[in-house]
Amino acid sequence: MSVLHCADLSPATLHTLLSAKLAQAPAFFLQAPIVLNLSDATETPDFNRLKNLFAELKLVLVGVTAANPEQKASAHAAGLAVLQAGKAALKTKEPNTSPPVAEVSDNKAVASAAASSSVAATMDSKVIEQTVRSGQQIYAKGTDLIVKGAVGAGAEVIADGNIHIYGSLRGKAIAGASGDTSKRIYCYNLQAELVSIAGNYWLSDSLQGKFWGKSACIKMQDDSLVISELV
């Protein structure tokens, strides 16, 4: 479930920050259940008003976490669930000196982005055992994608994390789909229609060259895609 961290809970600020975030990917958080992390908030907000605000933005406020007793009571009164703060959420807690930040993210993504790497290492990757056929689309949300077979021409594999393909890549591979430029694409045989990392893409034409038909690793370096040998 998505957790929202925010220090300034005044409806006006929240509306501005959330609208900006949602504008980046309007469909992605559509009617998504949201848990509000109150660890950075000192005062007790008007939860009924917040619920309406979330509904207006096509989000569903379902509960709060890391709340103090006063906030808990108020949340209960507004019909919200009070949840235990997850380990990852606690680790991301930062001192109040930073300016108010709104961060909407998947629980797991929080772990990989902000928490220590030991948490990220335990995340389950999405594993596809067979060949991804033409017309099929696979999306690994918030994690890595591993394909044991090939990715056929006209197929698309997308991951918020890294992509590993142990067969030929003939279709499209899109890594770091939520904007993480540190993600990479690894494939055993590069014949892709398109490769993309965090929105920076190369078409097949740009891939023709010494790595075509060979094993390759694609990454971002200095705002540009770079291909290197795998072994």
Partner: peptide
């Protein structure tokens, strides 16, 4: 070949 690949995807799903 590409259309066959598509149909193979359909067969498995």
């Amino acid at each position: 070949v590409r259309d066959s690949d598509r149909i193979l995807g359909m067969l498995s799903s």
